[in-house]
Write a protein that binds this DNA or RNA. Structure first.
Lengths: 258, 258
DNA sequence: CGCTACGTTGATAGGGCTCAAGTAGCGTGG
DNA sequence: CCACGCTACTTGAGCCCTATCAACGTAGCG
């Protein structure tokens, strides 16, 4: 299923000292931060690289948990499956993100992780990670920060789904996506949606028709621009305006006062 | 703000060996599991006890992150605040749950944690926890399991909000609440709601009126029973029936086939 | 060239929100 | 003791937003 090009660091480099508890490092902007994160991980613990293609599973719900995964390139969706047949995209992952934390508690994955396009993930044995962390406290700190970020981001999803009307929810989704791209040093002026309308809708708690209509309205209002006829590539030329659209949707009263 | 009754274990006991990577332990049922968890935490790292009353903050968004918290008794809500004024209850915490993980990444809390009734939390210095974990790998494993559970539970919230109609969402909420109580060895046949309808609605992405109507319907159908006139105490006498109600709401097609 | 997957758009219905009125419990002060 | 205000909960009426159903357009592909 996976093409695996072996690439195991032979002698893990010591973790840079300044990386330990360095809030300034995390607060900086630009793609260097995430590249540095990946380098530090690679230097501290053995990782196996895997090339994945669209639709490939990184891991599957129900399988035993043994490894965590780090996205090097590509985009991934994490899908929660409930036994009554519901399927819910709960998270999207980009370069530098960890996947698989949900499996730690029960020693069993309870989600699928699926590649949305061609990419590369590193798989890291959880046991090896714990051992490496014992030697390198900063590695542990890195993992904790990532889990913490994941918790915070899941909550942002919840707040969006609970409080925003459909159009604003889609706008918020595009904002967050643009922010994730910008964080990784990627341009947002011509980006290809890796997800179908149905997937976006599932992620946002909307139907595909509502997503389609919302995007048409955003386009009509000039907040986004479709680049191709198939409407999968778009230009997020004014992310602040999108963010403002979300803000106004939340507080119609306040927006008229100001 | 807090009454603090000093209680710092003088000589942390060594972590029981069998606690390291013990899936069987986590899988067992009954309240003993959670009591054991608390004992192990208490034995491994210094904790300061705090008595809190309804409405007291355990920590507040914006404040520097230095401590994690463990619920000993009582019930707590975690409230996410976005800068545009939205307020969203993102999680409920019971005995044995950790709070504050969200602050690790940015070294700053981004939620409020508020007591819903009188209770006791233990506050544990994050630095001390890391040091203790270096000595006791099983303590680290415990913390990881808790973070993992939190991620999994946040995702369950999302799936509920995204896929269930109002009545089923309330039923699902009551199911989860009953499960949390049962896990802790508490009865579910006469329980007092610690939250107002507005709080439940906020948590579930519904208005208070919808929550009220949903509970009235569930009561009318015999799935729950109100004990007092104020309608804050209720009897969850048949949790499986509640769970079934949720299941049927999800798959009306399948339910008619069977 | 038909087939399939994906996206858009329209018409309609319904679930949940909003607004509003009414009730009950509870603490306070006359 | 009861009036009063306050908070919480319930219930009804009407409307709006979004889901549903359906038709159609388009791109990619064997």
């Amino acid at each position: 299923m996976f093409e695996t090009t072996a690439c195991v660091p032979q002698s893990p480099r010591p973790w840079p000292l300044h990386a330990a508890f360095a809030p300034g490092d995390e607060g900086s902007i630009g793609s260097g931060r995430i590249a540095a994160r990946l380098e530090r991980i690679q230097g501290a613990v053995a990782a196996q690289r895997r090339i994945v293609r669209q639709g490939d599973f990184v891991y599957q719900a129900g399988k035993a948990f043994t490894h965590l995964f780090v996205v090097n390139t590509g985009m991934f969706k994490v899908v929660n499956l409930s036994r009554d047949g519901r399927e819910q995209i709960v998270s999207l992952k980009y370069r530098g993100d960890w996947m698989g934390f949900d499996g730690i508690a029960e020693h069993c994955h309870n989600c699928d992780a699926v590649a949305l396009d061609t990419g590369e993930v590193w798989s890291i044995s959880y046991d090896a990670l714990l051992q490496a962390s014992a030697r390198e406290p900063a590695l542990m700190a890195e993992v904790h920060r990532s889990m913490s970020r994941e918790i915070a981001r899941d909550r942002d999803s919840l707040i969006s789904v609970c409080t925003l009307p459909a159009d604003a929810r889609v706008a918020d989704f595009l904002c967050n996506w643009a922010a994730a791209l910008a964080d990784r040093g990627l341009r947002t002026d011509q980006v290809t949606l890796r997800m179908t309308r149905a997937e976006i809708g599932n992620y946002l708690g909307l139907t595909l028709e509502t997503v389609s209509r919302a995007m048409s309205r955003l386009s009509r209002e000039g907040l986004i621009r479709f680049v191709d006829k198939a409407r999968r590539e778009l230009c997020l030329h004014d992310v602040p305006a999108l963010a403002d659209f979300v803000r106004v949707a939340v507080e119609p009263a306040l927006s008229t006062l100001q």
